[in-house]
Amino acid sequence: MRFTKDHEWVALDGDVATIGITAYAAEQLGDVVFVETPEVGKTVKAGDGLAVVESVKAASDVYAPVSGEVVEANAELGDAPETVNAVPESGGWFAKLKIADKGQYDDLMDRDAYETYLGTL
């Protein structure tokens, strides 16, 4: 798993990247009440908006940490947005992207680097 400074995580399985937000981000957001996931087939570049997660307080953008084509969105979040709070780094994933450039993944922070980064916040 790799991490961004915006608190997204990416898990890579072959050329399919699963993307979600970290436990830290989920805790900061508070109770998630709605998630807008991307359409399958949509192409995104690293840094583009990928999803929107809404808590009681506010709407927050989730950015694509890597470029690729959306091959699946987490349909379960429609009925159960609270999954993002319950299991942010597994069942609370937002979308799967088919990626072309694994280098983008390798450039992201690993768990240790992310934990160190959290310590600076």
């Binding site: 508070g30 109770d31 009440v33 808590s55």
Partner: peptide
Amino acid sequence: PVQYKDGVLKEH
């Protein structure tokens, strides 16, 4: 304080 440990939903 915008929220306490319970969070907005539970506090509400």
